[in-house]
Design a protein around this nucleic acid. Structure first.
Lengths: 339, 339
DNA sequence: CAGCTATGTCCTTCATTGATACCATTTTGC
DNA sequence: GCAAAATGGTATCAATGAAGGACATAGCTG
């Protein structure tokens, strides 16, 4: 590895001069800068991020907290797309991303905060974790720049998808098609879930439709089996719904399987919608009606905001950024057959 | 941040002693070690990875090269699962993973190798990249420990899924069900593709079935549209196949859509199989017959091997590790209807 | 106009970052 | 008193930043 020392020797100047020349300080002559830069290039020099970080306490490294329980991290289509977009955005600014270790069983376990300090991360992006985890709370309470994705959070900036608008779009669409008995299957209880349910209720009331508690059924996100069970309960009600909104695209297939298993046709006999807009759902027939979340936008907004916080280029106010999703009219929604 | 200096001050010993105590050197008394460790714990000390790395030239950081063109990185279900498993394995040994920047358009662009050195990565895992890329070649030729996933490679250790056995299992299964006119749709030309085609041909010959060139059709991996086109060409042959093997699960849905669009039933009129075993394919009906790649095993083998190379605990011979996939008998394969 | 200070440019020296390695030194036990 | 055990001092890793020095030019005074 060629270091500044080598460049200094070749140029017959001091190491400090090389440092200043490469960092474009004002007190180095243009001639020297040119020479140093040329030699650096010729020798294939690249700075040593480790040494620089030690001195400047800036690593140009951002931590990513994507916990993987039950397929809800990297292998979660929605978050994978958000992360992908996030990654591209921060890379443009010269940052790399490192996963925060989440192996809590190791003997010498570090908390997320300790781990962030251990690696001297400049900032952390949080997504897809349990926000009641004491370690997450500790991280949120720290002075490390943090941006949270898809979770409401009082203390730090968060990027939310617009659940109200998503559910509202689906509800409006359902009403247009004449549905009144609309069921909503929820994911696990969380701020997101509550926001969606609230919106569902508001819309039902706005439309003057009866809000029946048995039409609001609790399942789990991305749990095909659980959602299948809940769906079959819904269908065996005396007055089954004519339209079911599922917690997400994955889960909806649990419901779809059950519906078909009972000999009902989609969308002729019953309409269904997912949520998220995963790529496969747009391709498999019947194409799923869903809300496509703008993962690209969420990732890049998160990146921009986090870098702002890190570099202090903007006042570091916490902020709630809401990204709106778009209704995808697939082939699983049709007119209420009872009309 | 509490550093060794602080511990040293509290314990009234030198920094050197603290360092040795924490690293369990033999020349420190048990009493001192105990005291130092206790104080370190009480003060909430964690080592500064940056400083340690500067001195020891070991970062406990592994680079990951997952290029994202055309949804073939993080958002690629197969690789996401492999990476997830890889990540869990290396974390157990105290390593973190960092993505190698792949933004080639930046003004101050570093090659993968330069970037690896810049971050002083201990090793790199490569997957899902174009192996003809000069930067990849440069990295493979370097002295940095590298493990490649899913690509044959002469110079470095690679983890391959057993394409021969995968195709063979599908072919055997097809023959059991009485199929003779078996078509194989390939992905883009690559070592993997060629291995699969070779195996397809070998099996056809072994069975004494006629190998027709028009039954070997070229598409792209994960390209639903392209695969749909190729499938419709296959189906319009004078003697269409009774069984089609698709390049991967995603792509197979392109074919499935076309088949259904022509009014044919799966598997009654035609049998189809995917490849990879993505989670959704096991859930959507009809459940896809496919080869489930052992992503867990591939990730953990890659991790183990890379750490071996890094830590030199085993002779650092390059090695080709083959991980066998498993036939998943879904609902898209049935007896040849012509029998 | 010599000689002295003032100013500014450009560069070097030295200390520093946190941890570790090596060698030197002190303590302990016999 | 001497070996063995325990501890301390210092250089080092690659880079940065503060402080300062060398040199040239400019301005001022006697």
């Amino acid at each position: 590895m060629v270091s500044m020392k080598d460049i200094a020797a070749t140029c017959k100047v001091s190491v400090a001069t090389v440092s200043k020349a490469l960092n474009d300080h004002a007190d180095i002559s243009e001639d020297t800068k040119k020479m140093v830069r040329k030699v650096a290039r010729d020798m294939g020099y690249f700075p040593n991020s480790v040494a620089r970080a030690l001195k400047t306490n800036k690593t140009y490294n951002i931590g990513v907290l994507f916990v993987e329980e039950a397929h809800s991290g990297l292998t979660h289509d929605f978050f994978a797309h958000v992360l992908d977009s996030f990654k591209r955005s921060v890379e443009e600014k010269g940052y790399d991303i490192t996963f925060l270790n989440c192996n809590k069983s190791r003997p010498n376990h570090m908390s997320y905060l300790e781990h962030s300090r251990y690696r001297a991360l400049d900032g952390v992006v949080i997504a897809c974790v349990n926000f009641e985890d004491p370690e997450v709370i500790e991280l949120l309470a720290s002075d490390i720049p943090v941006v949270a994705i898809d979770r409401e959070c009082d203390t730090k900036t968060c990027i939310l998808s617009d659940n109200e608008s998503g559910i509202a779009q689906l509800m409006d669409y359902a009403r247009e098609l004449g549905h009144e008995r609309i069921a909503y299957i929820t994911g696990k209880d969380s701020a997101v879930t509550r926001a969606r349910v609230r919106c569902y209720r508001d819309k039902m009331e706005e439309f003057g439709f009866e809000v029946r508690d048995e039409y609001i059924a609790a399942s789990e996100y991305r749990d095909i089996g659980q959602t299948a069970m809940v769906t079959s309960e819904l269908l065996s009600l005396p007055k089954p719904p004519t339209c079911i909104l599922f917690p997400d695209d994955y889960a909806s297939y649990g419901g779809i399987n059950v519906i078909r298993g009972m000999g009902m046709r989609i969308p002729d006999d019953i309409s269904v919608a997912g949520y998220d807009g995963i790529s496969l759902a747009a391709q498999i027939q019947p194409r799923l009606t869903t809300i496509r979340q703008d993962t690209e936008e969420m990732g890049s907004r998160a990146a921009k905001k986090l870098i702002n916080l890190i570099e202090g280029t903007a006042p570091a106010e916490r902020e709630t950024i809401v990204v709106t999703g778009k209704l995808v009219k697939g082939e699983t929604f049709a007119k209420n057959p009872e009309l």
